[in-house]
Simulated scan of single mutants.
Amino acid sequence: MTDYLRAVIDMIGPSDDRCADAVAWLRLESELGRSLPADYKSIADMYGACQINHHLYLDRPTDGWRDLGTWMRRTSQLWSQEEVVRQGVEPHLDPRVICGLPTITFGTAQGLIPLAGTDQGHLIFLAPQVHEVPDGIAVLNRELEWTGYALPFAEWLYRYLTGEEMCGWNSAVFYPGPVHREHLPTGPGQQTRVVHGPPRGM
């Protein structure tokens, strides 16, 4: 059985900016009313705040300008004001069906929690369940269509980086060669740093 957390780390490469702040995570989880997946926290600690392979943004708590908790709150507040279920939507695109929820809320223990986003307009959420599998990934794409992945975050990210369609239909983005990381400024005087992962034969 594949250890997808290990596979992601091996693919992206080591980080010289790892920051594990257990207190910050506990504070954020207390605010959310639930724990966040361990694989997600490990990946965020190792690589946030950065943009991975030109599109996917990943942050972590206490990262100054790019604090994960602040982004989660703002994103949840924004989407709480939007109509997220289209009239007459087909069941396989209805987030209530995908996540087994009577109503969709954001940033709550029994709702959808934003984990990451892309510059293509995709938002990646943690759902209490996806297709009856606990702690799955629900994605809202730029066409405001929902897709569910009954996978842990590390496996979702691994498949995303290997070019599978992980943000809905026709969403695959693949860059051959080493994974490209841009570590983003989180405070005054900092600059973007570009790092490449190890060769991956792709």
Rank of each mutant, 00 (worst) to 15 (best):
D16T: 09
E83T: 13
R60Y: 00
L101K: 01
M11D: 11
T186W: 03
P114F: 01
Y149R: 07
V8E: 11
M202N: 15
I104P: 02
S15D: 10
G69V: 03
L58Y: 04
Y47V: 05
F125V: 01
E83N: 08
L28Q: 09
D17N: 11
P128Y: 04
R74S: 11
G201D: 14
F125I: 03
G187F: 03
Q129V: 03
Y149G: 14
E132W: 02
W25E: 12
G121E: 14
P185I: 05
R60A: 14
V173E: 13
L123D: 10
P198G: 08
L140W: 03
L140M: 11
L126T: 00
C99Y: 04
W146G: 12
M166A: 13
L32I: 10
A7Q: 07
R96G: 09
A20N: 15
P134W: 10
Q120A: 12
T147V: 14
I43G: 04
L144G: 12
I52K: 00
A172Q: 13
V133W: 11
M11L: 15
R200N: 14
T2F: 09
G201M: 10
P102N: 13
H196K: 12
L58T: 05
V85K: 07
P152F: 02
A7S: 11
H55K: 11
E155F: 00
D94C: 00
E143P: 00
P114T: 00
R60E: 07
P188L: 15
H183D: 14
A20G: 06
G33L: 12
M72T: 02
T2I: 15
A7C: 01
S171M: 05
Q81G: 10
H122S: 15
D17Y: 03
D45P: 02
L78W: 10
I113S: 00
G189V: 12
A116K: 06
Q110E: 15
P91Y: 02
T2Y: 10
K41H: 04
D67L: 05
Q129I: 01
D135P: 03
L56Y: 02
L5A: 09
Y160P: 05
L5D: 02
T192P: 03
R200P: 07
S35D: 14
R34T: 13
S171H: 07
I43S: 08
I113V: 15
I12A: 13
L68T: 05
A150F: 03
G168V: 01
W79A: 02
G121F: 07
C19I: 05
D3A: 08
E165K: 05
I9R: 14
Q87N: 10
D45A: 07
A154R: 00
Q77K: 01
Q51H: 11
A24C: 04
L56F: 05
F125M: 11
Q190Y: 00
I124F: 08
G136I: 06
H54T: 14
P199F: 04
A109M: 02
C19F: 13
F174D: 12
R6V: 11
W71F: 13
F174T: 09
L140A: 10
V173N: 15
Q77F: 04
H183I: 14
N53H: 08
P114I: 08
D10H: 04
L157R: 06
G107C: 09
V173P: 04
I43K: 08
S171N: 11
